[in-house]
Design a protein around this nucleic acid. Structure first.
Lengths: 192, 192
DNA sequence: CCGAATCGTTGCCATAGAGCAAGGATTTTT
DNA sequence: AAAAATCCTTGCTCTATGGCAACGATTCGG
């Protein structure tokens, strides 16, 4: 147990009502981990054994393609969950990396504990379902929004939906998320 | 009830073991619907009240952006589920369309029946969780695979992961899925 | 089964974005 | 605070893709 579950409890309360003992039980499954800027939580090839909740700071989820390009699929800011889901589910080698962009504090829950909570507490089942549904919807929406849009439009989209991103993240990473080179991003910012 | 649930039962059996009465109960929630080529199941602006399972044929899920471009996010071939999820969940106007590309037969389950099954049968709960997890993983993987890849690579990716697509679908739609113009797709196919 | 409509292909040119190189700015390390 | 490293910007050039027009092929509806 620990004293770092404030934001997590807030998150859970926002989705459902649970009594104190239930919250205790949930909190007990998470452990707190502090990360320095640039520190990795997961490196490609290893199994991702935890689901992470960001207390403060920011994680990036990225992979490296055959051309050596870094591609970012997701930034998890405070109050968000994130894991290398396929690796986490099937306990297989991950094909992506998780790294702290800033000094970051996360709560980690191991796979077996996580699924045990989901399978035994209907509130957790509902929350997880909700998280998955939203994650899927957001992901498909991103596909629509990026498909066939020029880079400038994608940048505007980011400004609208993740205003944090442009101010808190290095340009390099914003570029890797938008799917443009840092050169192009720099030129586009001049046009805003 | 109806006699069109063979493929659906096969799908369920492949994920879990259920006795006949449970299968009956599930089957009774679905109704069969036949669609002509190009017929719509959902038009943008309406609420998507059903989750669909494709018996045979193919559905496309598409939206139209401000420039009037059609963008396709997903093809559901036989044996796949598909719905306009955010509309289905929240009973709000959909921002996308669902259309049969060929003569198609689907099984439809209404929202309340669907969530009732999920909430009262743990096997259905597990299946739905599984479907959502896989859908999310696939979706994120598609983002990685398309990001920063030239169009020819995206086409090769499609050939590998959806070999059906190039043969069964009009080129136009393959182009709208890959995020290129039909002109470009036509040129790329010459290079294969 | 035929005419009309739609679709796929291809030549030509226009444009967005990539990539290199160099200079300036910012951050990190010592 | 100085040195080193990293990052951001910008000029120039090159390539991939977009978009129009025209033609041939295929499909659809009567």
């Amino acid at each position: 147990m620990n004293r770092h579950t404030h934001r997590l409890f807030q998150y859970i309360q926002s989705k459902t009502r649970l009594d104190d003992s239930a919250m205790e039980r949930i909190g007990a499954c998470f452990s707190c981990k502090k990360l320095k800027r640039n520190e990795h939580l997961l490196i490609e090839g290893n199994v991702c054994r935890y689901n992470y909740f960001v207390n403060h700071g920011c994680l990036r989820f990225y992979s490296i393609n055959e051309q050596g390009q870094e591609l970012i699929r997701y930034f998890a800011f405070e109050g968000k969950f994130g894991t290398a889901l396929s690796s986490f589910i099937e306990e297989q080698s991950a094909t992506e990396n998780i790294q702290a962009i800033e000094k970051t504090e996360v709560l980690a829950i191991a796979r077996t504990d996580f699924y045990h909570l989901v399978d035994t507490m209907s509130a957790m089942n509902a929350i997880y379902r909700d998280v998955l549904e939203m994650a899927y919807v957001t992901s498909q929406q991103r596909i629509y929004d990026f498909q066939g849009q020029p880079a400038l439009e994608r940048l505007k989209w980011l400004l609208q939906y993740q205003p944090n991103a442009l101010t808190r993240l290095p340009s390099k990473m914003v570029a890797a998320y938008l799917g443009v080179t840092p050169y192009t991003l720099s030129r586009l910012k001049a046009e805003l």
